[in-house]
Design a protein around this nucleic acid. Structure first.
Lengths: 338, 338
DNA sequence: TTTGGTTCTTCCAACGTTGCAAGGAAGCAT
DNA sequence: ATGCTTCCTTGCAACGTTGGAAGAACCAAA
């Protein structure tokens, strides 16, 4: 690996005995280059393995083609699948995604929103989780941003979201239709911080109310985060407090997986004793035991819509913030009786 | 979102009534700036929300701080966890990771290896899966690269790998110690293309041979890829061909999850009838039903070692390719009887 | 007042690229 | 030969930044 400088336009020009600009014209397929000259230059480009220096090009053109993605963590299946869809959607638009993880830490989410100190990306796709209220509203960075999800209120930015009240309603209603009456809600926490939670919970309440069932506070089980282990622990406590519970609506699939795990360890049959519904429809839900009923959110479409919104801003669109609502759909599997 | 140009050094300089370079000196904490001048300039920087333009800076300095990661897909838990660890490790070194997915497509892997046409990143972290033999050996791009895993032979690049023969051996030996004798291998395919597979299979053969057991070709079950569904399908076929199978060594956890799913649907008890071992120890293996015995690969350490190797190259290290071997360890859970 | 030495600030050039405008060569009709 | 196109090629400038050197201002000592 010799420390040779990378080939530049200048090198190719010198080798071919033409001007830098001619080489540039060949590289960029500009008209008015004699075919033989084009061939000649191409040969040298090939021979010297010239590839344009992105930084020079970007500096000149004022855009980098880079989009920052700030996401809580890629590890979690839902965000992983979303990231994957965004990478592909960006690629299709000739953009490259650069990934930052916030670990759902408010400070790091703030940093992400404010642009990381150095201006390098053309846009931001942001999945906020715990960003303090107001931070987004006061965002000074003029880089276009798109938010994904319901969190991060008051932002002056485009957004792709899901009707989470309806999601909570449809999941709860499904359990009610299966004859369940003591339905726990898994994933409760500080609702002020988390609009997405508040909405799923509101849907749960709405469905119960419509069925004429009182909301039992003991059935609202908090979890510190929405990961498998938290679902497990919350269900262990739940079964102690309310052993008669006959259904669980988990705020996301991971909590549901933890719930299934706990139920199995405690000898409850699913769905006979306790039915379980999640939200997200991550791939695992089609393979876990029992397979999980859940509300599917179309990640591909969310990703594509988010990038479509962003691309318009990159092209200079100056319009008030827009919000797109992605589809959701109940998927019934074994955990609620197929 | 007014289409105002972003603030540059020139703007700050004009506002503060000093030269561009003085502002630059303040931004970069250079000595020889009078404290009061420093303060004055800082105030304008703050007021105008100046942030350095990464592209200009990078062009000048000749490095971008960007590292490309080329990975089959972020969705799969193992790669997702690896990506996550790499993002964090890069961040700690002041680098930013830019993610490309190859979908395990040979052409896209080749593109990744050859640098995507535009020179923009300082380095490459590459997880090859199906790259044609020889492509890496002929790589002309002088951007430093680190490979992760056993695939991609002949590359003139640093590598972080795992002793996959030992991995296959330890998993198979564990099943033998549990008294199993008809042990299937799940994930077979064109071994020439996939050294990692070849090695895990070699470990399987070695363990059987040591136990004096003949390798039964019917127990070597191919799968098109290493995803849950393929594991499921392969096990369905396996049970038809060899209903007497008493253990399955799956080349990775995803195949194992699919296997568990199929076994459950076909009424086989795990581990009583069939014991199952995977490889990777993704989080799901601690929560699936039954929980999965597997061989854990330390992703955090793999990621950190990979970036350490790369960072040395970025600093100009000129040395022959190096290979680091990361640790592995058997984790016993319910699927082999706890 | 001049000199010498600090300390602070500015100027110049360069990183690699591309848009623009001008330069040059060749072909054609006069 | 001259003028006029047309086609191809080149030179210049600029994107925003920073290293290095030159310049200016200031102060202390002669």
């Amino acid at each position: 690996m010799p420390a040779t400088r990378a080939t530049t336009l200048k090198d190719v020009a010198a080798a071919a005995g033409v001007s830098i600009k001619t080489v540039s014209n060949v590289v960029n397929d500009h008209p008015h280059v004699r075919p033989e000259m084009r061939e000649r230059v191409r040969a040298f480009i090939e021979q010297l393995d010239y590839r344009p220096n992105g930084m020079g090009r970007q500096l000149r053109q004022g855009r980098s083609g880079l989009i920052a993605l700030a996401v809580p963590h890629v590890t979690s299946p839902y965000y992983g699948e979303l990231t994957s869809a965004l990478v592909d959607a960006a690629r299709e638009r000739g953009l490259t995604l650069l990934v930052e993880q916030t670990d759902a830490d408010p400070d790091r989410e703030r940093q992400a929103a404010e642009g990381f100190g150095v201006r390098m990306v053309d846009g931001l796709v942001f999945v906020p989780l715990n960003i303090p209220t107001g931070v987004l509203a006061e965002r000074r960075d003029r880089t276009p941003a798109v938010l994904i999800g319901e969190n991060g209120e008051g932002a002056d930015a485009d957004r792709v979201t899901v009707d989470s009240v309806a999601v909570g309603d449809v999941a709860t209603t499904h359990l009610l239709e299966r004859g369940r009456r003591r339905i726990a809600f898994l994933g409760d926490k500080d609702a002020e911080r988390s609009p997405v939670l508040a909405q799923r919970l509101a849907g749960y309440r709405r469905a119960l109310q419509r069925a004429g069932i009182e909301v039992d506070p003991q059935l609202l089980r908090p979890t510190p985060e929405w990961e498998r282990g938290h679902g497990h622990d919350a269900v262990v406590e739940l079964l102690t407090a309310r052993p008669d519970v006959d259904a669980i609506f988990a705020a996301n699939d991971l909590l549901a997986f933890g719930a299934l795990h706990a139920l199995r360890r405690l000898g409850r049959r699913v769905p006979e004793d306790v039915a379980v519904v999640g939200v997200d429809d991550v791939e695992e839900s089609r393979f876990c035991a029992p397979t999980l009923s859940t509300v599917t959110l179309d990640r591909t479409s969310i990703a594509e819509q988010a990038l479509a919104l962003l691309a318009e801003r990159l092209d200079g669109l100056d319009a008030p913030p827009r919000t797109l609502v992605a589809e959701h759909r109940l998927v019934v599997r074994e955990s609620t009786g197929g």
